[in-house]
Design a protein around this nucleic acid. Structure first.
Length: 977
RNA sequence: GCUCGAGUGGCGGAAUUGGUAGACGCGCUGGAUUCAAAAUCCAGUUCUUCGGAGUGUGGGUUCGAUUCCCACCUCGAGUACCA
């Protein structure tokens, strides 16, 4: 009986599916463990070997935890709304739901072949109405909530209304829009219902507001900040411009501080925490109010260096600042307006690419220094960003390099307010060593004291206060797309109304085309049945809209991150129709214990999910403020591209001929050309040769020794020019009848179709089996590191599996043979050191080293000719997390009728590892020179005596007397001198 | 520019608290088996002037450093006028 992986894998995959082996129960007495993979988007391209890396690691961990007696939740589903299916729909007219369905089937097929222990009964899809019902539900909860800073949590909007009715808004400490005016209880009651709604929108956690958004004309939609990379769209790389639009937004800024603080409570990778910290961008400082000479209006600035207030020599406003037009003097009007026009034309990308050019314009207006009362010129400059802080800065050229550059460029004075510092060439930004000078009451103070003092003085004047600013902006939540969750929102008199929860889901309507309408409305504007009848509580035809009982529905859809921000909770009770999940389910499963996925989600998915989790926590829906205790970012698997090097011989009459040159001859191209010129293998003489060039070869034509399968390469339709090419082999001669080999060049590159280095898991499963694939992916290196894929190496783990199979099949003609003979001491030692190492490795997520441990174990047991059940049975369990199919088969042959999945993990016993002697490494000055075998129970003195008496010691010393002998019993002997 | 992370044979990588550097595998070399090939098995495989040297470079701490400290170099990832 040989190791027939195809038969075995098919058999057990079928068994697991039929027996629902990995179904997790919500009412188990066992302790829970929740292992989660990041939600995949089912793309049409299918999986390459890089994709399942994290899934394999999490699967090993999930299977291990089952062996350890846990009730494991290990689900999988699809983030199935998204742009590619919609773009395809625009091009072909095929409904995105169909494209999505096809892609999911393909995806599922690929996943199934790898033998994952997913509980497929819990599968969710974000585009399924039964799922997005709850996405809409959460949206409504957010709409009906406001953020109470006093309690530091989200509360129901009814609380806020009650407060307004009782005492107006003066004493309300909420996170809300900037421009909310104060009103009393009487005034509140006097407002019209519409006015009241407008005010409440400024407090709600999701709100409708005209905001400046990132508009991507090519995609026809707005994008969130994290969807823009280097000033262009993340998907497609299209330009993005700033535009004012009425959009739904999420008040994530309310949670900025908590999102920052709670990072300390989760076991996530430091780089990921760093990038979230960075993205939230907390800075401490002060807001200072400057009066403007001759105007009612004031300019608020945010600064982290209020201690440098006496160094202010000008102010700079963002060109978009609303005060610019009001304060600009008639004389400066032309200059300022032309500057604003010029900056508005520059795209985000231009502005980012070109940060060195200094530009600006003087408004002609002056502000008044809060203390010295001196006039300060007010400039505008595009180095000040409208979206950060107040969009205005107090410019301190001696302490800030950008202000310094600006001042120098426009010949603005640069007063020095630092003791003993030269600021003629560049600004001095060091905080710690700063002593303030030329600053009235701040003279002689160090940074920290000066900050405290100046804030105190500003507060006394009523012109400033200490403030904490965040870079994190509220997240735009509307997308002008078709393939996303519809909002459960209709409009009465322009004011948004929520549809009652009991009528959810509001199902995405059918449209005839997926593009924006001719009037520029989002694709849902094409829907003909898209109006809300409040009497019938149903979606009805647009023709019935009368603004009395039938109203228009929202035309935007939700962004990609809506459905993925809570899916980990929905898995706990995915088919519940009455609740997002039952109390019992969430109380049992609580949160994710291990989350594995890519680092590209650092500032998108992982920040939004934390935000929604905290909101649901505030509302008492979930019991934990963080959804994932531990998170691991798996590294990327890169491809190992193969290159064929060649020169082109050109003839008259536009004819040319390709000559491929093997690796050893790259340096000798001239010789090749010379030889070829003199004795061309074709009838004509070439007149010109190209330089040495190279082209990608498909990696499947290259074997483990980097030899090219020339015939296959010749016949590949991708490179017809090589059809009749000649190949010069390693010996420097033209290859004929396989008398030589052609060696390709290799280079590590990103795995991509265009580089012909994509390897699919299916082809690996077909050739070596899923168990080999799983082992090899782990064997490549540490999970978190990026590493290159090279299929050639897989033969190592494949022969390991065959060897392991033979260990259980030592009978006649490979018949199964495991005996009940007593294991030897060596057998047990091998087994127990393997148990110890594998357990430690899995706990440390060091999966690569346990594969090596398995190999050592099987090699040793094979040498020992071990076929004892007492050893081979626990070995099958050890291996089963990594290579589950072969383990199940062996387990079955060992006589078990139930799955190995819940077999207890073997127990490690120290006693089998106890040795009676130790082979001591003997070092001289720290360098190991030889080893001697000594009993372990020798004292230091006895060891020293034995070592010094040894011939080799004397040989090394050559008559010298050692200065010192270091002895660490059980470890090492080091002789110094 | 800033912030992180990483540099070990031909290649992927190992060395868990400072204690035998190069485990395990690929590739390579030689051999066995075979009519032959595949498969399998055995031996060797960091460099070396055979004294030794050696974990990116230079220094330091230590009896002893891939591991700790300082400076530098290279590569990778993230971020970018954040006041």
């Amino acid at each position: 009986m040989t190791y027939d992986f195809r038969k075995i894998e098919e058999k057990w995959q079928k068994f697991w599916a039929e027996n629902q082996t990995f179904k997790a129960e919500n009412d188990s007495q066992k302790e829970k463990f929740y292992v989660l993979d990041m939600f995949p988007y089912p793309s049409g391209a299918g999986l390459h070997v890089g994709h399942p890396l994290g899934y394999i690691a999490s699967d090993i961990y999930a299977r291990y935890k089952r062996h350890k007696g846990f009730n494991v939740l290990h689900p999988m589903g699809y983030d199935s709304f998204g742009l590619p299916a919609e773009q395809y729909a625009i091009q072909t007219g095929q409904h995105p739901a169909i494209t999505t369905e096809t892609n999911i089937s393909r995806y599922r097929e690929q996943l199934d072949k790898i033998g994952f222990s997913f509980d497929w009964s819990r599968e969710v899809r974000t585009s399924d109405p039964n799922y997005y019902k709850w996405t809409q539900w959460i949206f409504i909860q957010l709409f009906n909530s406001w953020y109470n800073k006093e309690a530091d949590k989200a509360e129901d909007i009814s609380n806020l209304i009650a407060k307004f009715e009782k005492e107006g808004n003066q004493n309300v400490n909420a996170v809300c829009d900037e421009e909310v005016l104060d009103f009393s209880a009487t005034e509140w009651k006097a407002f019209s219902p519409k006015q009241q709604q407008e005010i409440l929108l400024k407090y709600r956690l999701t709100y409708l507001a005209e905001t400046e958004v990132n508009w991507c004309p090519a995609l026809g939609t707005v994008l969130a900040n994290d969807e823009i990379v280097n000033g262009v769209s993340e998907r497609g790389g299209h330009p993005v411009i700033r535009k004012k639009m009425t959009q739904w937004s999420m008040r994530i800024s309310a949670y900025a501080q908590r999102l920052l603080d709670d990072l300390a409570t989760v076991d996530w990778p430091q780089p990921l925490k760093d990038s979230q910290t960075n993205w939230i961008g907390r800075s401490e400082g002060a807001e200072v109010t400057f009066k403007v000479n001759g105007h009612e209006e004031v300019i608020d600035v945010f600064t982290t260096r209020p201690d440098t207030i006496f160094g202010v020599s000008f102010m700079t406003l963002a060109p978009e600042h609303e005060l610019v037009s009001k304060i600009t003097t008639p004389e400066q009007k032309v200059e300022v307006e032309s500057y604003i026009e010029a900056t508005a034309k520059r795209s985000e990308r231009d502005r980012m690419a070109d940060v060195k050019t200094i530009s600006g314009a003087f408004t002609g207006a002056y502000a008044e220094h809060p203390f010295s009362k001196e006039p300060i010129p007010i400039w505008i400059g595009d180095y000040v960003l409208a979206g950060y802080g107040t969009g205005a800065v107090m410019s301190v050229p001696c302490g800030d390099q950008r202000d310094h550059d600006f001042a120098k460029h426009f010949n603005i004075p640069i007063p020095n307010i630092f003791e003993g510092v030269d600021i003629s060439e560049e600004a001095y930004a060091d905080k710690e060593k700063t002593i303030i000078a030329n600053s009235d009451f701040l003279n002689g103070l160090p940074y920290k004291k000066a900050v405290k003092h100046v804030i105190y003085e500003l507060e006394k004047l009523g012109q400033g206060e200490g403030k904490i600013n965040y870079r994190l902006r509220d997240a735009v939540f509307s997308r002008q797309r078709y393939w996303g969750e519809p909002f459960p929102v209709y409009y009465i008199d322009g004011m948004p109304q929520m549809i009652d929860q009991e009528h959810l889901p509001i199902v995405l309507p059918e449209v005839v085309k997926y593009l924006p309408t001719e009037t520029g409305e989002p694709p849902l504007g094409n829907a003909t049945v898209w109006a809300w009848d409040v009497k019938k509580s149903a979606v009805v035809s647009n023709q019935l809209i009368d603004h009395k009982s039938v109203f228009p529905l929202e035309l935007n859809t939700m962004p990609g991150w809506a459905g993925s921000s809570y899916y980990f909770n929905r898995y706990m009770d995915p088919t519940n129709e009455n609740e997002i999940f039952s109390k019992g389910a969430i109380d049992y499963w609580q949160d994710v214990d291990l989350y594995i996925g890519g680092s590209e989600h650092a500032t998108g998915h992982l920040l939004y999910s934390r935000f929604w989790q905290k909101f649901l926590f505030d509302k008492g829906v979930v019991p934990k403020p963080e959804f994932a205790k531990k998170l691991i970012n798996q590294g990327m698997i890169t491809g190992t591209s193969a290159f064929v090097y060649f020169v082109v011989a050109r003839f008259a009459k536009d004819k040319q001929f390709y000559i491929a040159i093997s690796k050893s001859a790259w340096g000798k191209v001239d010789e090749v050309i010379k030889k070829w010129r003199n004795t061309p293998p074709v009838n004509e003489k070439p007149f010109r040769f190209s330089v040495l060039n190279r082209t990608h070869s498909n990696v499947k034509y290259v074997n483990g020794s980097d030899e090219l399968d020339i015939e296959s390469f010749r016949n590949d339709v991708m490179n017809p020019e090589f059809k009749d090419a000649i190949f010069i082999g390693e010996k420097g001669k033209v290859i004929e009848d396989n008398d030589d080999v052609y060696i390709v060049g290799r280079e590590v590159e990103k795995m991509s179709k265009s580089k012909y280095n994509v390897v699919s898991p299916d082809s690996i499963c077909e050739e070596y089996g899923a168990d080999s694939l799983r082992l090899y992916e782990m064997f490549l290196g540490p999970l978190e590191q990026s590493k290159p894929w090279n299929t050639a190496g897989i033969s190592g783990v494949y022969s390991f599996l065959k060897k392991m199979w033979r260990l259980y099949h030592g009978g006649v003609e490979g018949a199964f043979m495991v005996t009940d003979t007593e294991p030897t001491a060596d057998n047990l030692k091998t087994l127990h050191k393997t148990i110890k190492k594998v357990e430690e490795d899995i706990e440390n997520f060091s999966f690569n080293t346990s594969v090596a441990t398995f190999m050592i174990c099987v090699n040793e047991l094979a040498t020992q000719k071990c076929n004892s059940r007492e050893v081979l049975e626990p070995l099958a369990v050890l291996v089963s997390s990594y290579a589950p199919h072969i383990a199940e088969e062996l387990w079955n042959q060992l006589g078990h009728t139930t799955s190995i999945a819940t077999a207890p993990f073997p127990k490690f016993d120290e006693k089998y590892l106890v040795e009676s002697s130790k082979e001591y490494p003997i070092s001289f000055n720290g360098k190991m020179r030889f080893k001697i075998e000594l009993p372990v129970d020798l004292s230091k003195e006895e060891i020293e005596a034995a070592v010094m008496a040894h011939d080799k010691t004397q040989e090394q010393l050559q008559g010298r007397t050692p200065k010192k002998v270091i002895i660490v019993p059980g470890k090492i002997v080091n002789i110094v001198g």
